[in-house]
Amino acid sequence: MDIRRRNNVTLTGPEGGEGDGPVVVLAHGFGCDQNMWRLILPALARHHRVVLFDYVGSGASDLSAWSEQRYSSLEGYAQDVVEVCDELGLEQAVFVGHSVSAMVGVLAAQSAPERIGSLVMVAPSPRYIDDEGYRGGFSEQDIEELMASLDANYLGWSAAMAPVIMGNPDRPELGQELTNSFCATDPDIARVFAGATFLSDSRESLKSVNLPTLVLECTQDVIAPREVGAYVHAAIPTSRLVTLDATGHCPQLSAPEATVQAILAFLQEAR
């Protein structure tokens, strides 16, 4: 199987020995695709070899490789990560995972320790649904509402969710070539990914993490509130917590400079 094509793998940054840092793998979360990293990519790729990819079922991945069984749990997504790392022969890479991908990175590092040397968790949450003694912020019913939103936007409005992103003269960094698949997925696949994401519980896995880890949280994040960031930080003794002055769940979009500075500082330190 052609893993590079299956996961729409993109490599950028200095080649061979030119880079002065470890390879950085950027993994998108539920909702959109690798274009999520577009705003911080240039700064990262200046010094690091950067790997971008789409999980099977998202973005420009090969949808024919998708199966409900594999992608109903985070292990399936972690398998994607390990297979991409294997394909590229990565060792001790820095895995940057956004949202649910932070937990996918934990699972991938457990199954292939030689591939991943450190973790950057952007707005992570090990569990979205409230539990006894734990506040994730959501109930199962809330997740059902999200599913309904996915359906509602699929029917008649899928065109809006699959916009052709036009060249924006004010934001040249967006470029003209953005695909129209950003954030647009088959609703059945999105539903499975949503279930895998929001019904997951990775709290046990967190305890075993002993890699240098950077936890990035936002001051105002509906999906991953600050108490969840504190929980993740507390669960991983080798982690550092940085709170970005940013709102929303996507600091790499809403506060790209602060986000990339925090990541670069961590890379510098970890070297």
Partner: peptide, 12 residues
């Protein structure tokens, strides 16, 4: 948070 905001940020 997972669809609307990222799209708006990207597209304007």
């Amino acid at each position: 948070e997972t669809h609307f905001a990222p799209l708006l940020r990207m597209q304007g």
